[in-house]
Amino acid sequence: MRNKLKAGSVLLVTLLLFAVGTHIYSNENMWFQGMVYLALAQGINILYGFTGYLPFGYVGFFGTGAYAASLYMTDFHTQPIVAILGGGATALIVGLLLSPLLRLSGAYFSIGSLAASQMIYYTVSNPALQAVTNGPYGMNLEAFYNPTASYAVMLVILALTLFTTAYLRYSRTGLALRATREDAVSAAMAGIPVVRMRIMAWLLSALIAGLVGGTFAWHISVFYPNTVFDLNVSIFAIVFTLFGGGASLLGPIIGMFVLYGLYNWIGISAPQYFQLIYGVLIVMLVLFLPNGIMSLFRKKGYDVP
């Protein structure tokens, strides 16, 4: 009960902040991107935080969702919301096709997922496919442009994502996922269907990235392949999660607010200085605080949601 209360209040405060944020500080784009990164960071969290698989190529699902949703809008004239759901479904299917990657462990999985994402990118952006994807020239959704509606849809997706993470944080399912991360052999002996659980987490994170990608495409309405397949999208989401700490609801939220805040303060005009800061942060975290900021509080005996 206390757990539900804690998780619920974290969820509520975060969502409220994004709901009214634009009235506090009018840079709507910044708030929107904040939601995008928070949802992606939680997607990384579901996979990496709970199962230990770190997907460098996570952006592949984001880009897939963006392109699929856009194509459903432009070529099939579907409603944006239906198109976004289609984007999520497409990312889910790609995730299913790529699920053999989960047979790989540690570094191999990370690099394998990166290769998969780059393959999707080079295929989508290939001039030979210009008739389908418009090749390197990107997509144009100006006919569907609606910043208010897309902002609201993004808020809903963020809410669902946060809710999912909160569920995993406190449910037996989440506990079982963490057990597979700790020791797959023992997990199997404890009766956990290890492979099925991992695939579930993988597909869930793919679905989230696909939905977020579709909404992102709708919101900015004009984009190029290298906008939505930019490796920095993966990197940001990973760093936010690592910074706060995985397998928790609050970790990635803290990571996003602190680091994305920092990015908006110094990063936009001088991204290389921001890159330097988070590079140093990663090295320091690995050496001194491998479980993120939240582990500091946990060590002190606080139960962090």
């Binding site: 230990g52 770190l54 460098f56 540690g106 570094a107 990370s110 990197i235 690592l242 290389q272 200085y273 890159q275 330097l276 988070y278 590079g279 140093v280 942060l281 990663i282 090295v283 975290l285 690995v286 050496l287 491998p290």
Partner: peptide, 22 residues
């Protein structure tokens, strides 16, 4: 160590790239 080293060298890669751009 395997996973942590991957992340550490990834951080190092970011540092080198940033310093090189600067």
């Amino acid at each position: 160590p395997e996973m942590l080293s991957l992340i550490l060298f990834f951080g190092l890669s970011q540092i080198i790239q940033a310093l090189a751009v600067i």
